[in-house]
Design a protein around this nucleic acid. Structure first.
Lengths: 218, 218
DNA sequence: TGGGTCTATATTGTCGACACTTTCTGCTAA
DNA sequence: TTAGCAGAAAGTGTCGACAATATAGACCCA
C-alpha cells in the first residue's frame, strides 16, 4: 500500500529488513551485524549498509560511528512521545485535508469506510488494522503537504506499526474507532477544518490512552 | 552548534556538501554526479553515496533509482508547506518546553536572550540569524521529546536554513522578532504551556507572512 | 523531415578486498 | 586478586573494479 515495487536490490533488502523489524523477527534492541545480514539476505555488505541507512531514516535503527547499528528499543516513554507528535501532525493533516482534498478524494474516503464497515462487522481483526492504517494514510495524503506526507509516511508510520505489532495491540477499540473515523470523514466532507482537526486529535488521544492502560496492566 | 565533530570521512563529506547546498554553492535543482563529487571532495564514491543518503534524509536532495540525486528545488509553495509544519511542530515544542525544561534550562535561555540583545543593538545581522536559530534550537531540545527533536533538527532545520539563505532573508524583522522571543521565554519561565504554544505559533506565522510579502515583491 | 531503433557513452548499482577502529582475551605485574 | 596492558579477533569504514541501467547521439526508413 505504501511503497511502490522495489526496483533495486537495496530497495528489496530494505523492505525485507523493515518488515522483519516491525514484526519482531529481528528483535527490538538487537545488534545488526552487516556481514551476517549480507549472508542472510544474500547480498553484498554495501547493499546491507544502504538498507541500514534507510532504516535509520525511518527511525527504526540507530547507528554509531565505528560501532554499528541497533534496532531501536521500544519503551513506554518512546511510544507516548510518538503519539504526542502524531497528535500534532495528524491533527494538522486532517485540517489541511478538509480544505485540500478534492471531491473525488472525499468520496473515495467514504467508500473506504463503507468497505471497512463490512469487515468490522465481520470481526476480522487483521483487516481492521489494515483499514485503520489505510484511513489515516489517505488523510495524510489528502493534506497535499509534501513535507508532512514525507515526515509521516517515511518517518513515523513504520515505527508506529512496530509498536502496535510488538506491544500486541492489533485491532483494539474496533467499533469505537470506526465511529470516530466516520465522524472525521464527515467533518472533512463538510470542509470543517477546525472540527476535523479536533476530532483527529481526540481520536489519536483516545488511542493513546487505550494503549497506556494496556501498558500499565502488562 | 548542531553537530558534533565529524568522526568518519563520510560525516565530513556530508557536512561539507550540506553547507555547500544550503549556501547555494551547489545550486538548487542541480544534479549530483557521484564521480565528479568524489574527485571534488577527494573521497571514494562509496563515501559520496553515503553522504548523499544522509542529505536525502534531511530532505535536501531527492534520489531516483538508477537515475541519480538532485538538490531539491526551492519553490514558494514548498516554503509555505514547511512553515505550516514548523508552526505545528515548534508550537508543540514550546508547549512541551514549558512543562519539561529544567530551571537551569530556563535560566540558560534567558542568558542567551540577554547576550542576543547586545548583538541586536549592535545591529550585526549574521549574529541575529545565528541567535534566532539558537533560540529555536534550545526550545526544541527543551521539549525533551526525542521524536520531535529528531524530526526538526535532523529533518527540517537545514532545509529551512537553505530557504532563508537563498531567498535572501537573513536578519529580517530583527527587533520585532527579538521581542517575540522574549515573550515566549517569559511564558516558558512561567510554565504557561498554552501561552507558550500560542506565542510560538504566532511568531512563526508572522515570520511566514513576512517572507510571503517579500516573495510577492521579488 | 520526423519518428524510431540501435549503438555508444555516461552514470548508478553491486561486489569483494583491504584499512582502520573497537572489543574481547589472556597475560603480566603490583 | 585485580588492574592494566598487549595482542588477537571481530566489525565497521573506505576503496577500486565490474555489472546493470539509463541517457544521448547516429543512423535508417518512411
Amino acid at each position: 500500500m505504501f511503497d511502490e515495487n522495489p526496483v533495486t536490490s537495496a530497495d528489496k533488502t530494505f523492505m525485507d529488513m523493515r518488515n522483519a523489524i516491525v514484526e519482531g523477527r529481528i528483535a527490538a534492541g538487537a545488534k545488526l551485524n552487516e556481514a551476517e545480514l549480507s549472508t542472510t539476505y544474500e547480498v553484498s555488505r554495501a547493499v546491507v549498509r544502504e538498507a541500514i541507512n534507510r532504516l535509520e531514516t525511518c527511525h527504526l535503527v540507530e547507528r554509531k560511528p565505528n560501532v554499528g547499528a541497533r534496532v531501536v528499543q521500544l519503551t513506554k516513554q518512546g511510544l507516548l512521545q510518538i503519539y504526542q507528535v502524531r497528535e500534532s501532525l495528524e491533527g494538522m493533516a486532517a485540517r489541511l485535508a478538509a480544505s485540500n482534498m478534492s471531491d473525488q478524494d472525499v468520496s473515495d474516503l467514504k467508500a473506504l469506510l463503507d468497505n471497512h464497515k463490512q469487515t468490522v462487522e465481520g470481526g476480522e481483526s487483521y483487516y481492521q488494522e489494515a483499514g485503520d492504517v489505510d484511513f489515516h494514510y489517505r488523510i495524510i495524503l489528502g493534506s497535499k503537504n509534501q513535507q508532512l506526507i514525507s515526515l509521516l509516511v517515511n518517518g513515523l508510520y513504520h515505527l508506529i506499526r512496530m509498536y502496535r505489532v510488538q506491544f500486541g495491540m492489533a485491532g483494539p477499540r474496533v467499533s469505537t474507532a470506526f465511529d470516530e473515523h466516520k465522524n472525521i470523514a464527515m467533518a472533512i466532507a463538510n470542509r470543517d477544518e477546525e472540527l476535523a482537526e479536533m476530532l483527529m486529535r481526540r481520536h489519536i488521544m483516545y488511542s493513546r490512552r487505550n494503549i497506556e492502560s494496556k501498558l500499565v496492566e502488562g
